[in-house]
Design a protein around this nucleic acid. Sequence first.
DNA 1: GTATTTTTCTGGTATAGACCAGATTTGAAT
DNA 2: ATTCAAATCTGGTCTATACCAGAAAAATAC
Lengths: 239, 239
Amino acid sequence: MKYLHIPYYLRLRDSLAKKIEEGSLLPHTKLPSERDLKDAYDINRVTVRQALMQLESEGLIYRLIRRGWYVSPPRLFYDPTKSVSFMDNVRAQGRVPETVILSKTEMAASDWVNRTMDIAVGAPVYLLRRRRLIDGRAVLVEHINVNPVLCPGLLDLPLECSLTETLKEQYGIKISRTVINMYPAPLDSTQAEELQVVAGAPCLYLTRASYDQHDNIVEFDQEFWRHDVLEISMEVNNA
Amino acid sequence: MKYLHIPYYLRLRDSLAKKIEEGSLLPHTKLPSERDLKDAYDINRVTVRQALMQLESEGLIYRLIRRGWYVSPPRLFYDPTKSVSFMDNVRAQGRVPETVILSKTEMAASDWVNRTMDIAVGAPVYLLRRRRLIDGRAVLVEHINVNPVLCPGLLDLPLECSLTETLKEQYGIKISRTVINMYPAPLDSTQAEELQVVAGAPCLYLTRASYDQHDNIVEFDQEFWRHDVLEISMEVNNA
DNA sequence: GTATTTTTCTGGTATAGACCAGATTTGAAT
DNA sequence: ATTCAAATCTGGTCTATACCAGAAAAATAC
C-alpha cells in the first residue's frame, strides 16, 4: 500500500512555484504575509513556513529578515574557468552590479593566513572586505587577503572595481594561476547580517587563491554567496 | 539594544556540530532519536528538528527516511575540468564506489531531447539510468541520454563502469569537449526515493553535454547529487 | 513640515500535543 | 529454527497558541 496523500506544505509550495514559473509573480515581488497565506490556504502558519522554507532552499524565493518573502530573480551564470570580473559578468548579463567596501585594514598575519598564503605569522597582510550587489540586492560578501609585499599601498587606491585589474595596471601583477574551491556552508552571524539573512543560512562558500607569473600567491579570496544566486557554467576541452 | 540570546535550536546545532568536528561522533554514526534529544536537551521536538535540519542543510548530518539521522562522511573532491570517471575519482580518495543500473532503454526522442541533443523528434535515443554509491551510501542518480547513431548496441555492453571509456574503446569515440552546468535544485519524488531522501530535498543538479572529435553531441548526462556529497575543486590557468 | 513617539505588522523562536506510515524489533505460532 | 503477526520505535506532517524583536506605518508633538 503506497502513500498517495500530498502534504499541505507541498501543495502550497507547488501552487506558489507554479505562479512563479508561469510569470504571474515577477522577481522581487513580495509574497503575501505568512499570516495571510495561512488564512488563504486554511492551514497552520507553521505549515506555511515549511512551504516557504522549501521554496527558499530551492532558490525560488528569498527573504529579507523580518520584512517578508520575495520572488528570486534568475541566477547569474558564473564560469570559474574564465577570469571575468564580477562587475563585467553581471553587466554582460544585463544586470546592475554594485560594490560596497565594508572595511580595509592592514593586519598581522594569523596562523591561518600563514598556512594559506605563506606569509610569516605576524607579518603584515591586507584584509579587504566588500559586499557586492546585483540590481540592488546583496548577493555576496568577500574577504580578500592580499600580500602587501607585492602591492604596497593597495588600500589607498580605489577598490570598488576589479582588484585583478588594479593589480595588473598599478603593480604589473598578472594572475597566471588560480585555485578554486566551493561547497555549501552556513553563514556566520556577521556575514548573515551583512547579507540580511538569518544566521546559519546556507551559502555557497567559494575560495580563490591567485598566483602571479612567478607563482607567488598574491591574493586569497573567501566569497560567501547567497545560495540561490549562482549557476556554475563552464566548457572544458579535453586535450 | 542588540539581541544577544542564542536560540535553543542553534545551541543544539552547535553542540552536535562540535561533537562531529572534534571526532567524538564518527561518519555514519546514528544520532539519538529526535525524542531522546528532546528529553536530553529539555526542548521541544519541533525545536530539535529545526537544529537537525539546519545541520542537514550544512551537510554535517544526513537522514535515512523514517530511520534516523546520521553523521555525514567527508565530501568528495570533484574537479570538473578533469575528465576523471566517478569510479576512479572515488577510489583515488580511498573510498569504495559502486554502480547500480536502474534502467536501460531505447526511446523515441522527446522535444526536450531534440533541443538539447539535436536528435530528430521520434528518432531513437538511448536512456540509461544509474545509481551510484560511495561506501555503500547512495549519492547520486543519473540519466544518461546517448545518441545511438554513434554507438549502436551500446546498451548490450557492460554499463557499470566508465561510459567514456566504453565509448572510446568500443566505438573509437573520443570526448573532446564538455559543457557543464550546475546549480541546486529540488529532487522529484522518483529520484528522492532512489536516494532514500524526502521528496523535494535539495540536490546539486549537474548536466554534462559531451561532444566527440567531430563536435557531434554524443551524450547528455543529468546528474542529481545529494547536496552534501561534493566539494568542487579546480585549478585554472589564465593563459 | 519635520521630527518623534506609538502602534501595527512582519517574520523568528518556542511549547504541547496529536496522528500517520514505514522500519525494526519482539513475540507467538508453526 | 522459521515464519508471520503484533507491538514498538522512528521520523513526517499538522494544529493551535504564545511571545519576542525588528521594520514599517500611523499618530502625535513640536
